[in-house]
């Protein structure tokens, strides 16, 4: 399965994503410069983390108008999987592919730590090998990860199973004390209604190998491959 990692000016997790997919998962993977417009041949697009355009104006706001994004939107509209991690998540909300937005962390600090997240929906292209309620330990590293969405959209998202990850305690307790950044309902990752577009603040590409003492991120990419190979999700 062929993965494409989009590189915006200011992306800084593109190399990690490329390494995770090509070297760890053994998948053909290519970088896609943000000015390219050809996504033919790709099975999954990754928008990596970083500080595209220096976070000017709002995180992801300017990257959203990079030439490649029209093609990413078309790709997503065709039902193909798109995953945005951290700044990639911010770009997806700015592009309107995902609901809501990411505000400045409530405590105004840049937070860089490994944190527990609970898989709320294991019936997506990105989580189909997880158990519902499974707890993954994945690093976060962001200053603007405070998820917000209006009440009526949130209700709709809950009905549609669009909340994919929530910050939690080590045993899966979703409680305010385990909310690192002020996110509404501890939300750490959401998908669109069709579930083929996922945005998440935690960085699975940073915990893929035993040498790093954490391989919890592997299951996300394994799930995508499983989905692309025809396995995985109901309905």
């Amino acid at each position: 399965m062929k993965f494409g990692v989009v590189v915006f000016p200011g992306s800084n997790c593109d190399i990690d994503c490329y390494h995770a997919l090509r070297d760890v998962m053994g998948q053909p993977t290519e970088y896609i410069w943000h000015k390219d417009r050809d996504l033919s041949g790709f099975d999954c697009i990754v928008l990596p983390g970083g500080f595209s355009y220096g976070d000017y104006l709002r995180c992801g706001a300017i990257a959203r108008f990079s030439p490649v994004m029209d093609k990413v939107i078309e790709f997503a509209d065709r039902g193909k999987p798109v995953i945005g991690i951290c700044n990639g998540f911010q770009i997806l909300t700015e592009a309107g592919l995902l609901p809501g937005t990411l505000l400045r962390n409530q405590n105004m600090k840049f937070i860089c730590e490994t944190i527990s997240v609970k898989v709320e929906n294991a019936n997506t292209p990105f989580t189909n090998l997880c158990e519902e309620g499974q707890v993954l330990n994945i690093p976060i590293a962001h200053g603007d990860g405070n998820y917000f969405v209006d009440d009526s959209t949130l209700e709709e998202m809950q009905v549609n199973g669009q909340i994919v990850f929530r910050y939690c305690g080590p045993d899966g307790q979703v409680i305010e004390g385990r909310n690192p950044n002020g996110s509404l309902k501890n939300i750490a990752g959401v998908c669109n209604k069709k579930r083929n577009v996922l945005g998440m603040m935690p960085h699975p590409e940073r915990c893929m190998e035993r040498i790093l003492n954490n391989e919890d991120g592997v299951i996300i990419f394994k799930s995508i491959i499983n989905y692309l190979e025809g396995g995985g999700i109901d309905g």
């Binding site: 706001a61 909300t93 700015e94 937005t101 505000l103």
Partner: peptide, 8 residues
């Protein structure tokens, strides 16, 4: 389109 994010 760009200058404001009307969600917030």
């Amino acid at each position: 389109k760009l200058l404001a994010n009307t969600v917030i």
